[in-house]
Amino acid sequence: MLPIQFIDGDATTPEADDNKIIAHVCNDIGAWGAGFVRTLSDRWPEPEREFRRWYHDRATSGFRLGAVQLAWVETELWVANMVGQHGIRTRAGIRTEAGTEPADSGPPVRYEALREALHTLAEQVSRLDASVHMPRIGCGMAGGTWDRVEPLVAEALGTRGIRTFAYDRV
């Protein structure tokens, strides 16, 4: 099993010489504009454009919790939009497509959906012979904790020998 390598830096500038996939967590209501996605959008328009198209066509596109979409952004570089968050956190609670749930209903992150997405990502990474680069996914706007996310990453990627890097912005 390969351990996760931790790097002080920016996940949008991956430090590797192979094919690279930048993985991050998206919500299931089509919202884009806060957290790590802002950094992505500052660098490339493709991840947001593809996410919005995927969400818009959700009746037929396979968009759902646990799904993954790869958006090609540069030579040897893709962004993995992983749907692992139910709704978004607001001051009033958790906003979902159905309305607002109470804030005490738990964080938006859905660990089982994230597990599924990471296993799907692992298959895509293997096909591309790539390494994975990410912030501490699911722990920002999604409200998750790294002690719950790290084992999911290790299970899906590390056990398959996939080089994985987690970045802490300095």
Score class of each variant (00 low, 15 high):
93 G>F: 08
30 G>V: 01
97 E>H: 15
84 G>E: 10
90 T>F: 02
38 R>H: 13
97 E>T: 13
109 V>H: 06
87 G>K: 11
126 S>K: 07
106 G>S: 03
33 G>F: 05
61 S>D: 15
97 E>P: 12
110 R>F: 09
103 A>T: 10
42 D>P: 08
90 T>A: 15
41 S>R: 08
120 T>V: 08
73 V>Q: 10
74 E>R: 15
124 Q>L: 12
59 A>Q: 14
47 P>V: 11
58 R>P: 00
79 V>S: 04
100 T>V: 14
96 T>G: 09
98 A>H: 14
45 P>F: 04
48 E>T: 09
38 R>V: 15
123 E>Q: 07
65 L>W: 03
100 T>S: 13
113 A>V: 01
121 L>N: 11
58 R>E: 04
120 T>P: 00
73 V>E: 07
79 V>A: 07
99 G>V: 10
95 R>P: 03
61 S>H: 12
106 G>W: 00
62 G>D: 06
64 R>I: 00
77 L>G: 14
81 N>T: 15
55 Y>R: 10
39 T>R: 06
87 G>A: 12
43 R>E: 13
64 R>W: 04
39 T>N: 12
101 E>Y: 07
62 G>P: 03
124 Q>E: 08
111 Y>K: 05
88 I>Q: 12
85 Q>I: 11
108 P>L: 02
123 E>I: 09
52 R>D: 06
65 L>E: 03
42 D>N: 09
79 V>P: 03
118 L>A: 08
67 A>M: 00
70 L>R: 01
103 A>D: 04
31 A>Y: 10
120 T>A: 13
77 L>Q: 14
52 R>I: 07
82 M>L: 10
57 D>E: 14
30 G>R: 12
86 H>L: 05
41 S>F: 08
117 A>R: 05
119 H>L: 03
36 F>M: 09
92 A>F: 13
51 F>E: 05
45 P>G: 02
65 L>N: 08
121 L>F: 04
119 H>Y: 07
96 T>F: 06
104 D>R: 00
94 I>G: 09
73 V>K: 01
113 A>W: 02
46 E>P: 00
43 R>I: 09
112 E>C: 09
97 E>D: 15
44 W>S: 06
48 E>N: 13
32 W>H: 08
108 P>Q: 05
113 A>L: 06
59 A>C: 05
63 F>V: 06
29 I>V: 12
108 P>D: 07
96 T>H: 15
76 E>G: 12
89 R>S: 13
118 L>M: 11
85 Q>T: 04
50 E>R: 14
26 C>S: 15
123 E>Y: 03
60 T>M: 02
108 P>Y: 01
43 R>M: 09
59 A>W: 11
93 G>S: 11
106 G>H: 01
70 L>G: 01
43 R>L: 15
68 V>E: 08
71 A>P: 01
127 R>A: 14
60 T>I: 05
90 T>V: 11
60 T>W: 04
99 G>W: 12
27 N>Q: 14
111 Y>P: 02
114 L>D: 01
38 R>C: 10
113 A>M: 00
122 A>P: 00
89 R>K: 14
51 F>C: 02
94 I>W: 10
81 N>Y: 03
75 T>I: 09
90 T>P: 01
118 L>F: 14
